[in-house]
Design a protein around this nucleic acid. Structure first.
Lengths: 209, 209
DNA sequence: AACTGTATCCCCCAAAGGTGGGATTGTGAA
DNA sequence: TTCACAATCCCACCTTTGGGGGATACAGTT
């Protein structure tokens, strides 16, 4: 019997999933909650077994992405399958890196969801060709030049950010004024479509720059 | 037009493949040889284009496995698909690590081979669930769990930081005031011996938390 | 009972970061 | 030759962070 957990904020998706999984002899759905917070609370107070978790990638509050670490911290042996609305390969790849082992688009037929849970429980995983390729490219050090929209100068500044340096320090290291670095930072944010240093650092570590 | 190369020692497999690929408008089979040695010689003397290579994993002489490095050395941008007789996951995983992006069992229908070449050329890849899982386990940081000095609450706040959220957003998501989050952040910084959000994010991505 | 740590909040202030302009110079492509 | 863009700086304004206090409450340890 495979213990399955569901974390999905939309009731209209969560309930049918719960019904379906509960109705099957091979599955047991111990937990079906709307947030990561609720999930962590549930597993904390009662010592429920947990084999596979279906986790919405785009939850409000603690996002599904950051939840992976939190969950695996508590349940290191659980297999996490992400639920996504669209086939957002960047987010899915980030989830894979964080420790998820698969993903399902939300309108997947119930029968195939069943199969995915079984596959996952039996040590397999199902990835789309694009995601799998991204994962493989991560391995292939020979071809790690993802063409970045950033200029050399901008890359140097990003490197400083990733180092944990303040703009003042970066300016000093590169021999520029603070305003120059701030100006470059503005351009970097625009190019990467973010609006904080923190997001740039995160993107960089995910290999998205 | 996709340039395809074939390296396969068994004539009865190589010739039909060559026929099939040559007969298709979208493909061009420049090279169909029986050994890695022959292949390297061919590409050295003439400057043929090469997009995708079908490479037998169990060749006599230079094995397909060790050939991957040699080929990628000469043609860094080529995509290599391994041809195998059996579904030998250890060998395939080794090939993936060496830089191959996919594999095909030799009795695969020609039509599916066509599709795999197209997928591969378009930046995809097709892996079996077992292989994919093996690859994922290779970089699951959560499995090597470093004991963190942080409390549950603090970890949640770190997760928010890594998500690129401001303290204000984290406070809203966790149902606290801004000051509470700031207070926790101070403690986190003290424990981790850092003094900025940026450093916490970097540490987290390095798996140091 | 005293102590330690966690979680929750409050205040203040200074430093750092983000946003909106604007200016100049140079380079290389249309 | 325009035009775009990179790199350099400047100013002003506002928000966010970081550090320094402190308070209360509750848990578990010694």
């Amino acid at each position: 019997m495979i213990s399955v957990g569901i974390i999905e904020d939309i009731k209209d998706l969560r309930d049918p999933l719960f019904e379906f999984i509960s109705s099957r002899d091979e599955f047991l759905c111990n937990i079906a909650v709307e947030s990561v917070e609720d999930f962590l609370e549930e597993v904390s107070k009662s010592d429920v077994p947990m084999d596979v978790i279906l986790l919405d990638i785009g939850l409000p509050g603690i996002s599904g992405l950051s939840a992976i670490k939190l969950i695996k911290d508590k349940l290191p042996d659980v297999s996490i399958i992400m639920l996504t609305v669209f086939d957002d390969s960047d987010k899915i790849f980030a989830a894979i890196q964080a420790g998820a082992v698969g993903y399902l688009v939300k309108n997947t037929p119930l029968d195939q969801i069943k199969q995915s849970i079984l596959d996952t429980y039996n040590g397999g995983t199902s990835l789309s060709p694009e995601i799998a390729r991204k994962v493989l490219e991560f391995f292939d050090k020979t071809k790690r030049n993802i063409e970045s929209p950033l200029t050399e100068k901008e890359k140097q500044i990003v490197a400083g950010m990733v180092d944990g340096q303040s703009f003042k320090m970066i300016a000093a290291n590169l021999g520029n004024t603070l305003d120059t670095i701030k100006s470059h930072a503005k351009n970097i944010y625009k190019k990467l479509q973010v609006n904080s240093k923190a997001e740039v650092i995160a993107k960089s570590f995910r290999g998205e720059i």
